[in-house]
């Protein structure tokens, strides 16, 4: 069953096209990573799915319903980012208590355990928390609410490495016990590789790729060799990224599909796998050259 279906989803913000003819669907009980550069449209997409924002054109359905201000979608989904607003007079435990009354699947025991594990104090106020602590607290709400659709928009903002690791682990553990549909947007793809089943890569509001994680890992291949040879060999092939490395050597990333790799080996070129994180960066590279070229 598809939980989310988008068909030609377009979102205009003033004159800027935030989402451009986006079509994809997401199956039930999967974890999808929403990957894209800054300003690619990740937050816009998630806010439309959460029912906060209205699509300009195209069709979007969540649980077979149009999400915009739909109460049924609202009760079965939760949108978490680092800007959740809470009353300044309520304590953290009061906020969790209120959240538990809104979400029917709320696991009180789990929320209390996570609350204690991350050593929050009951009487702390939300606006006294640091950026990373806020993200951690929001994450507790996101996990404990056990919504059928959990949308996490850059959930690890400000978290330190140890907390991030704990967070991914907690997410996975709870997902295995209580399968649900999750979408995570993040810049840290390398950390989430083991967690994600699918990756939705968007660029400039358009869908670039929607692949299972395993296929994404195999998507590209790195080729290193003498510059002339590499340049000649990659001619007429799908080149994703080229960079000169050292003296008279070039590193190129190509789409693996249909490449005569044996021949490349015979020519003395070195083949290396490209990580999912790197391939996403290379695929969405919008700049000409590298940052070094700016300083030339």
């Amino acid at each position: 069953m598809n939980v989310i279906e988008c068909n030609g989803l377009t979102k205009m913000q003033g004159n800027h096209t935030a989402l451009d003819q986006l079509s994809f669907s997401i199956k039930e009980h999967t974890i999808t990573g929403l990957i894209g550069r800054n300003g690619a449209g990740k937050t816009t997409l998630l806010k439309i799915l959460a029912g906060h924002w209205k699509e300009t054109s195209g069709e979007v359905t969540v649980f077979s319903k149009r999400p915009f201000h739909n109460l049924f979608v609202s009760v079965n989904s939760i949108y978490i980012d680092d800007q959740l607003a809470f009353s300044t007079t309520m304590t953290l435990s009061e906020i969790l208590n209120e959240a538990s009354r809104f979400y029917p699947n709320w696991d009180k025991q789990l929320s209390e355990r996570l609350f204690n594990y991350f050593s929050f104090h009951e009487n702390q106020k939300h606006d006294q928390l640091s950026k990373g602590r806020k993200s951690t607290f929001h994450m507790i709400i996101g996990i404990a609410s056990r919504c059928a659709l959990t949308l996490l928009d850059e959930p690890t903002t400000g978290m330190d490495a140890a907390v991030r690791k704990d967070f991914y682990r907690a997410l996975l553990r709870d997902y295995l016990d209580h399968p649900r549909t999750m979408i995570l947007s993040s810049h840290h793809l390398e950390e989430m590789e083991d967690l994600l089943e699918n990756v939705l890569l968007i660029q400039n509001g358009r869908k670039y790729l929607h692949l299972p994680m395993d296929e994404l890992k195999e998507y590209g291949i790195g080729v290193t060799g003498r510059t002339e040879m590499v340049r000649q060999w990659i001619h007429n092939k799908k080149v994703i990224y080229v960079k000169e490395v050292g003296k008279n050597a070039t590193y190129a990333v190509l789409k693996r599909e249909g490449l005569p790799l044996e021949k490349a080996k015979q020519l003395g070129m070195e083949l290396t796998p490209v990580s999912a994180s790197d391939i996403c960066i290379y695929l969405t590279n919008q700049t000409k050259g590298g940052i070094d070229d700016v300083f030339k």
């Binding site: 009760v75 300044t88 309520m90 809104f102 029917p104």
Partner: peptide, 26 residues
């Protein structure tokens, strides 16, 4: 995960009581 049905009156009640707690400073 099964989907929960929603009762609009219940949501309004919950929001109302949430507001009473959240807006004591008023």
């Amino acid at each position: 995960m099964s989907l929960n049905n929603v009762d609009i009156k219940r949501v309004i009640r919950q929001q109302f009581s949430y507001k009473c707690k959240a807006n004591t400073s008023l």
